[in-house]
Write a protein that binds this DNA or RNA. Structure first.
Lengths: 133, 133
DNA sequence: ATGATCCTTGCCATGATGGGAAGGTCAAGG
DNA sequence: CCTTGACCTTCCCATCATGGCAAGGATCAT
């Protein structure tokens, strides 16, 4: 399997596959005599794992750790859970931040008449003072 | 006012003030004969506006537009509202995405016993198949 | 005058991703 | 055999918002 096929089989772009190899997230892949990367079924599994982890919002560093845990048959589930819980906490923090921004913005948008007149509470708020209370 | 004072007065870092000037988000600031940037009260207002907009999650491009609307006494509130609403929609999209990730992850974490045994549904899920459904 | 603290510019880094260029390889078909 | 098109290789650059560091100049207080 060439890199393009590995990409479509795994859902990871060609660019990113090479990148992951370059940063050591995946091991160096064997090459054909002409220098083409050659992927085996287990490489595809690896890439799929990475894609799912990435889709779950894990950072590259976290994925690196997840991979090493995955490949360690002896790992305690505790470590995995810890990592996942930390990431989850992080997600929830980000969600709350975005939510409070969205809430404030919703207020402002609701109070803006939005017609042709120049007066606008959104700009007033940005220019002005207290952040919507 | 020097740039350092402008930074603490506005809440925008020295680095970012210079950056905003470089990318044309704010006009070129007057300089002292020695080349130091010199800030007036209205420059601080501008920086504060930018900081608030940035805190509200607007992109630099959107802030640029907001600034031009702000400075145009004739702007229709409609345009501002449109911009803010678009950003709000964007925020809400991002929030939902994060929420669905968080929800899936919460399930997985909940089902992981998290003790010393190696079996772990989190890794199984990443490795395996259906995304927790 | 000397040291501390500020300012200047410029380059590099982040993290995840993509674009594009210049050049090599391979398979299919005339 | 040669061309063509699709693929591969590496390398460099860009994004976005932000920061760090370095070398050198300015200012200010002692």
């Amino acid at each position: 399997m060439n890199i393009g096929q590995a990409a479509s089989a795994s859902g990871v772009s060609v660019k990113m596959i090479r990148h992951y190899e370059a940063i050591g997230l995946i091991p160096k892949i064997s090459r054909t005599f002409a220098g083409y990367r050659h992927y085996q079924a287990r490489d595809i599994h690896l890439l799929r794992f990475i894609r799912r982890a990435r889709d779950a919002g894990f950072s590259t560093a976290q994925i690196k750790k997840l991979l090493s845990l995955w490949q360690d048959q002896q790992r305690p589930a505790r470590e995995v859970k810890q990592l996942a819980a930390a990431h989850l906490a992080d997600l929830q923090t980000r969600i709350s931040e975005l939510e409070s921004i969205a809430q404030a913005l919703t207020q402002l948008v609701a109070h803006c008449h939005g017609d042709e007149r120049p007066q606008c509470p959104i700009l007033d708020n940005l220019a002005g003072g207290d952040t919507g209370r």
